[in-house]
Design a protein around this nucleic acid. Structure first.
Length: 276
DNA sequence: ATTGAGACCTGTCGGC
DNA sequence: TGCCGACAGGTCTCAA
């Protein structure tokens, strides 16, 4: 489920329990998620202090006192919750069968990773190997940083015969968008998700006006979503187009109706009237 | 090299 | 109520 704004919300929520705290123990309840946990995962984490908790695209990165980095991805159904560690639980706390990892922190909190579908990932990266890690090195620019702009987006899409929607889902073009915010950004930018990605660039690779609109729209929808997450609770979002099939387009002056289509097996929502 | 389809897993929801 | 298929906010791999 989680795209960049949700991952950022998770980061902010669990950081107070993890950062500057020591990992007293790790309770690993199965050998794998989407991939096996690294060898000695729990043992290597035990006793380490979390120096910082950062985010890159949809990945969470816990920087550890040893110089190693704990990399975490929520997949489709992953979530974290924080509980107060019971000193002497008379009755064992009910444990969800999908609670796969528990970090027992010296802050007196336990951070529990739950993931029914197990599409999540955890990995432990050796000191100095961050830049070389296969998943991180393949990530495009962070959309809310100065590394991201229309020119870079246009360059990434130049000559691509695939659709704009598919291009936005490709984490090499820009990191952190998923099925929801790709649809949302294209709506804000008034671009049809089916247009070819190559329309963002001139033959020479320079950004066209559409690239400027799209880059700006990406920032806009992500910033708005993060602000909303900071206030509301997770889950009751209202989107511009996502999951609004047959509803009226909310754009001022547009009388269109939101349609749902399929691209690469995933649903895409857009307004055929104002998105061209 | 790029692109699209299928695979990975479990839960939920709507229709019959 | 129960069963069954479709679908879910993400990647990864494999074959055109």
């Amino acid at each position: 489920m989680p795209e960049l704004p949700e991952v950022e919300a998770v980061r902010r929520r669990i950081a107070p329990s993890m950062v500057h705290a020591r990992i007293e123990a790790v309770d690993l309840r199965r050998p794998d998620l989407r991939r096996p946990f690294p060898r000695q995962f729990a043992k290597r984490l035990g006793g380490q202090t979390v120096v910082a908790l950062t985010r890159r695209g949809k990945y969470l990165l816990a920087l550890l006192s040893s110089g190693e980095t704990l990399l975490m991805h929520l997949g489709m159904s992953g979530s974290f919750r924080v509980i107060r560690a019971a000193r002497m639980p008379r009755v064992p706390r009910a444990r969800d069968s999908h609670d796969h990892v528990v970090f027992h922190m010296s802050s007196g909190r336990s951070v529990v990773f739950n993931d029914p579908r197990r599409f999540g990932v955890m990995d432990l990266i050796r000191p100095g190997q961050l830049q070389h890690h296969p998943v991180l090195s393949a990530l495009g620019p962070e959309p809310l940083s100065d590394d991201f702009d229309a020119a870079g987006l246009a360059r990434a899409c130049a000559g691509k015969r695939t659709s704009l929607k598919a291009a936005l889902l490709d984490q090499r073009a820009v990191a952190g968008l998923g099925n929801i915010y790709a649809s949302e950004a294209l709506h804000v930018a008034r671009l049809s998700p089916r247009r070819r990605a190559s329309i963002l660039a001139t033959p020479g690779g320079a950004p066209r006006e559409a690239a400027h609109r799209l880059a700006e729209a990406i920032r806009h929808v992500l910033l708005k979503a993060i602000a909303r997450q900071a206030r509301g609770r997770y889950g009751d979002e209202r989107f511009l187009v996502y999951d609004r099939e047959d509803e009226l387009c909310s754009r001022k002056g547009c009388a269109g109706t939101i349609r749902r289509g399929a691209q690469g097996g995933r649903s895409t929502f857009s307004c055929p009237v104002c998105q061209r």
